[in-house]
Amino acid sequence: MNSLSLGQILRRPEFGAVLSFVAVITFYVAFGGVSLGTLFGAASWVNFAANLGIVALPVGLLMIAGELDISIGAMIPAGSMSIAILSGYYDLPIVVGMLGALGLGVLVGLANGFLAVRTSVPSLIITLGTLVAVQGLVLAGSVILTGAASVPLEAPTWAKAVFGQLILGKFQVIILWWFALTIVFAFVLHATRYGNWIFAMGGDEVSARNAGIPTKRLKIALFVLSSTAASFVGMCGAIQFNSAQVSGGMNYIFNTIVSIVVGGVLLTGGFGSVVGIFLGALTFAVVNQGIYFTDIDRNWSNLIIGVMLMAAVLMNNTFRQMALSYAPKKKK
């Protein structure tokens, strides 16, 4: 029963993501004249994928649980500004800055989570509210405290080594964080009971609650996880580039949602996989950054992303139907 047949591979949620990844690369090789060696040797798209992927993992889990978090768009600059103001402008130890950045993530996550479980307002609207609110808070706070919208940060060597150095001169160390977090998330979602709860909650929240799952606590925890992850990405960016800006991060909102959906997660919840989310981020990054290595004008990249999203969603629907209608052959 454990052997992987072709049919079993076809029915996995991430199969569509694998196809998208291969299709995009094939397209670039065939029509863009890109050489595979150059593409896989390049760091830009892997760096891009890692930053995107770390945010996409917890947001993807939230989506599987039936919720959405778009406030991550504001949490990324909020994370980098927090550490830059605390440790750069006020010269506090870097650890204080890190705790400040991650703590802000936890706070915003708690706010999102409590609002989501206490009210019947859809999480899209709630996190839209916190998105704009955090944006305002960061801009106003930065101008009041430092008088500028951009703050320099000089991180000590050890912090740079862990969060913001370049490996082999081009690969951001955050890539390793992305790999590690993917393994942790995959374990939690697919191998522990908490993962089962997340799937159940996204499938049918009332039934899940009746079955004794602490749906409210679980939901709050997931919101905390996603905004803290976004804050973490912002923090690493500030350490890496020695400065932080109040703007930016908005692109992440759509980029994460696209890569999660391409990765085979059902937008309405209850279905998906961590490997899929991982591959979704990778595919998105290849389309977005890989285009620079091709002969194709880079203005076309959004068109390709749009087409890929549609194709991936249609493909994922088909595979989900196949998974649903699957029955052992002998009894048919």
């Binding site: 799937f199 159940a200 049918d204 039934s207 899940a208 209850g270 279905f271």
Partner: peptide, 9 residues
């Protein structure tokens, strides 16, 4: 009627 079961699990 549909028994507290989760279609995609």
């Amino acid at each position: 009627q549909f028994g507290g079961t989760f279609p995609l699990m």
